[in-house]
Design a protein around this nucleic acid. Structure first.
Length: 112
RNA sequence: GGAGUAAAUUGUUUGGUCGCGUGCUUAGGCAUGAGGAAAGUCCGUGCUCCAUAGAGCAAGAUGCUGGAUAACACCCAGUGGGGGCGACCCUAAGGAAAGUGCAACAGAAAGAAACCGCCAGAUUAUCUGGUAAGGAUGGAAAGGUGAGGUAAGAGCUCACCAGCAUUUAGGCGACUAAAUGGCUAUGUAAACCCCAUCUGGAGCAAGACCAAAAGGGAACUAAAAAAGGCAGCUGCUCGUUGCUGUUCCAAAGGUAGGUCGCAAGAACCUAUUGGCAACAAUAGGUCUAGAUAGAUGACCAUAUAAACAGAACACGGCUUAUAGAUUUACUCUAUAC
RNA sequence: GGAGAAGUACCCAAGUGGCUGAAGGGUCCGCUCUCGAAAAGCGGUAGGUCGUUCACGCGGCGCGAGGGUUCAAAUCCCUCCUUCUCCG
């Protein structure tokens, strides 16, 4: 995943939190905001309260993997921030994939 | 074979499809990419800034001896004490006769002790003197056991044991052994303290350089010197550094952000030599992560099972977590011979 | 990544070696007041857990967890756990 498709600055994260819409389901929270660019960008925030460093790394890598495989289905011109909830450390990769697709569907971010 | 002690190693393998960080590149690719604890941040160093890192006090650390080290609370070799049949393990282990404090309750008394008792004398609801053998309290009661001795007793005397001091011998030393002496004033220093040795403070979010936006900045003479005030250097004192009012001008400063710090090092491997060892010296060889919302993953196949866990300046230790497998040395014990 | 603070009944908390299971509030229970409640006032041998008991009661353990020093630890020392704060 190229760096231009990722949110990297603390300022940009804060802009998405304050000005964006948010959606949630049992496993995830999603913040969305228009970014006036040609492509969509994404970021992940995991609190230190979830597991230890190994668990957090595994969750982050799985979310990146799901996003990479479904990248082409997502509408252009938005910033997305995924925030996993505490129970994500117990679910499998397959369950995480369906949860992410579900939240993208209810937020109306999938292309037709 | 069983039970155990000590030390060490390893801690997923191979293949396929898609994907990530860094470096190189002829732009297709090639090379390389987490740990024994990367963890906790408990110690010690390097490194950076603060004044060149200064003086005194305060505060803190260490605490048997010797060695080793860049340094340490770690490590090695020993000493004393404790535990285990043993291999072996544990040990904050200086000073209580420098001084102060504390030892609740109980008990006569918690440090140079007469409540009861025992003995002697006077007197008779008791008083005076001697006495630490016995009672009672307590975690602890004034060296222990036995014998002599005595009015009753007592290291008062003697034997053995424990403890103290001196001398001699051995050892670099902690200390050990023997002899002699006087017979002895509890515990607590992870209470204050004393003694010896050591420590300036902060920390890579240190700090250096470039530098948007926003915002006003610099020079000068009088006050001047001195003193005072404010700020920085350390918790305080000393000491030390900078600033303090009027006139001119478009530079200075360092926030967001970026670059560096940032990986060839007290490095690792092998051999030899010195040393009981920790370790040191020499020679040869190797280059081995460097991110900045933070790189190792997903799926499939395979092997019987695979834990704890993820670098953020680096290194030496300590502590804590850890499934399974393997190796070496040693101890006790059953059976057999 | 680095620096620091705290942890005591259900909640807020005092206690810095000894008669403290632990002061004091809130809470809970009972009573007064009221038609009834709330508020207010008065009282309480209540309070976690384990064992024993019909119950009352009695005993053990318990101040984040585990060790150590001491005759004696919530308090002193060491290790670990959890929570919170600050530093660009």
């Amino acid at each position: 995943m190229d760096k231009k498709y990722r949110i990297r600055k603390n300022l940009e994260f804060k802009r998405v939190y304050s000005g964006g819409k948010n959606y949630w389901n049992r496993n995830l929270t999603l913040y969305i905001k228009k970014n006036n660019l040609d492509e969509s960008r994404f970021g992940i925030t995991i609190t230190k309260k979830i597991g230890n460093a190994v668990v957090r790394n595994r969750i982050r890598r799985r979310i990146k993997e799901v996003y990479r495989l479904n990248f082409h289905k997502i509408k252009d011109g938005y910033d997305l921030v995924f925030i996993p909830k505490k129970n994500v450390q117990e679910i499998s990769y397959k369950q995480l994939e369906s949860a992410m697709l579900h939240i993208l569907k209810i937020s109306n971010m999938l292309k037709d």
